[in-house]
Design a protein around this nucleic acid. Structure first.
Lengths: 112, 112
DNA sequence: CGAAGATACCTTGACGTTCTACATATGCTA
DNA sequence: TAGCATATGTAGAACGTCAAGGTATCTTCG
């Protein structure tokens, strides 16, 4: 009935991607697997969310991209964090902390 | 440039509203003020977000509504939580815990 | 008296993100 | 040779939120 929620908290995908890419160059498919693995399967990035997001971040110059051979021997597009991307990551991170803390406050205050 | 984020984490507004209404009948304008106050101004609900959200929740029978006189002596639409709304609140709450914990995991794991 | 500001409700149209579904191709393995 | 994981991508739609606009009442202050 269209009442179900997204697999993600909308607006947090960029943060997740930037964090993972900050660990070192990595290709798109691996990013989604990594997020899924770290989150113990709680976060599943659909391909229709992943690739548009990567293109968006690349367009904004937060990610740089380069085609290289993956560990598997296949060609893949490796993303890496730009200097601007690192700045943006800090912004996204503090916004997350700020907003999630605020929601925590509301949850706490309303259960008295 | 459209790069700035929402004042909210998209998808959490329903949870916030349901929590506040769970404390007792309250009208829309007061809900937004209350959320703003509890969150120490971190969360500001725009009226263009608030009223459509309230109508959505009412339509889904998670909120009931009744016109009454507010403390100020003016007419206002008071919302209260239905039984279904209480169930939904539990769902929204656990979804929030699940997803925010998962994001916390990714943040932790990527800063090593 | 008149203006301003807070209270209280609402709608419209645009926007960005995410989703489902589809499409393509390669490499490995059973 | 069929199936599955890997790997990238697109199109169209749904959804929630935002900016901006509107109405009306009540109180306060000049």
């Amino acid at each position: 009935m269209g009442i179900d929620k997204s697999d993600l908290l909308q607006g947090t995908l960029d943060l997740l991607i930037l964090r993972v890419v900050a660990m070192g160059p990595i290709h798109g498919y691996a990013i989604s697997k990594r997020i899924q693995q770290i989150s113990r399967d709680a976060l599943r990035i659909q391909q229709g969310s992943l690739y548009p997001a990567l293109h968006r971040l690349e367009k904004r110059k937060w990610l740089g991209a380069e085609w290289r051979e993956a560990e598997t021997g296949r060609e893949a597009k490796f993303y890496s964090l730009t200097a601007e991307g690192r700045k943006r990551l800090l912004v996204e991170h503090s916004e997350w902390e700020r907003l999630s803390a605020a929601i925590g406050l509301v949850i706490q205050a309303t259960q008295l």
